[in-house]
Nucleic acid binder design. Structure first.
Lengths: 241, 241
DNA sequence: CCTTTTAGTGTTAAATATACAATAAGTATA
DNA sequence: TATACTTATTGTATATTTAACACTAAAAGG
């Protein structure tokens, strides 16, 4: 019994390594992208992998994820949520590694602040153009992250995290389409988003060729609680609940 | 970068301990119960805690959870799902312990097979009558488990896992009413449950005063995948989506 | 035969979702 | 000034889902 072990002597137990891996999503060129790093050494030399790293003994799991995120993108204070913990014995050929996977959403305006430059081996990839099979079980992790993203999109305001501070309704609709992978009806979308009252008109307009776009801001609750705005009523389960 | 570390030398890193904790639910006397073990030693001597234990180097996380579950209840082959991973640095005063929490559902008939008998310190508690503050952060873990359970009940077949092997449709309806806290329409319930095709007629009847009750069995998928039977289409939130 | 209980079917109203059409409003540019 | 382009919004018809309630049938016991 875990913490209930009668006589506990840390040195008596062989311990796995523990890491965090972060699936960092952003919207670039109107398409959903994921951050990947290219491996230089065995195993999986040359393959692309999710950014991640060992947890320090004195930081929480989420802090570790935020640290990794910042190291790779220079971004702070963004949406982060724990996805799932992957720990199959054979997933890393070197030793037993248990990885707690996190999902991060980087908004379009913050994403350009990226400082990461361990050279050319860090890149954003469109999810429709992922580079071959990924290292380790990262294909599985990424698939799980996408699943989660899609299912949460339908009944939370998660999508707003990918947008800049200020955005138009059609931009929001575009995000929904990107992630859900289907076209949505313009009229119905306007109706629904307005009825939900999650938007705050900034009064600002962005002018262009046609009628100027009204720009909105996501109306946050106090704290960082998520608004409950459901795009669809129905949703189909996903493995992690 | 986790598995991406350039030069990886296991011995160079200080490692946390990794455990699994299992929140084992069952239905007893028409009420939801949780299995707890009482601690005999420091820390949290005398406090109740969730069963759990260290993972072995050659078993998967789920295998570890199943092993712990069997050690405590003697039960095998039941519903198990990963809940969340808890890893705050201070959650165990002895050392850094990261715990992957699982939810297990034990059906009413299997629950009596419990073999566990490390004496009096293993007990089922009604969730309405939990014993004081639990050890470690187990109050938090339990609360998270309850949240997840309640929200998944409405759009999955989770409820079946709490029923005995063989049951009647009206018994199933009763469980739904208990958990949702409202009366359901008999006719609509029959229709919905039949249309979902998640039941298998056992052919057995239970006779009594009126027309005999047909007894059914939950039709499992191969593997341990959950059937997707939604009592309601809509549902709000749970943390892990 | 009458009662009791399970096990359904039928029917309808209301609410939601979906698809598609139409149009107004404001700006740029030819 | 005309028209083209884009955002923004309303209208409507159809389909699907949910919900409530009434009704029938089956099987057994007394």
């Amino acid at each position: 019994m875990s913490e209930n072990a009668e006589s506990y002597d840390p040195s008596r137990y062989e311990r796995p390594s523990v890491t965090v891996d972060v699936v960092i999503f952003t919207l670039q060129d109107r398409e959903l992208h994921v951050l990947m790093v290219q491996r230089k050494h065995w195993p999986y030399e040359g393959r692309w992998a999710l950014p991640g790293g060992f947890i320090n003994m004195d930081e929480s799991l989420e802090q570790a994820a935020r640290r990794e995120l910042e190291e790779e993108t220079g971004v702070r204070d963004i949406y982060l949520e724990q996805l799932y913990t992957f720990g199959e014995p054979g997933r890393d050929p070197r030793t037993r590694v248990i990885s707690i996977a996190y999902i991060a959403l980087v908004s379009a305006d913050k994403q350009t602040l990226r400082v990461s430059d361990e050279s050319t081996d860090v890149r954003w990839f469109a999810i429709s153009q992922l580079p071959g099979p990924l290292a380790f079980d990262h294909d599985t992790i990424l698939a799980a992250a996408l699943d989660r993203l899609r299912s949460k999109l339908e009944y939370t305001t998660l999508a707003f995290q990918l947008l800049p501070e200020v955005f138009s309704i059609l931009e929001l609709k575009h995000i929904y389409e990107q992630i859900l992978g289907e076209k949505l009806d313009k009229g119905n979308f306007y109706r629904k988003i307005k009825d939900a009252k999650v938007l705050e008109d900034t009064g600002i307009r962005r002018e262009g060729r046609g009628r100027p776009t009204s720009l909105y801001r996501f109306r946050r609750n106090r704290g960082d609680e998520q608004f409950v705005f459901r795009w669809r009523e129905a949703r189909v389960d996903d493995a992690e609940g």
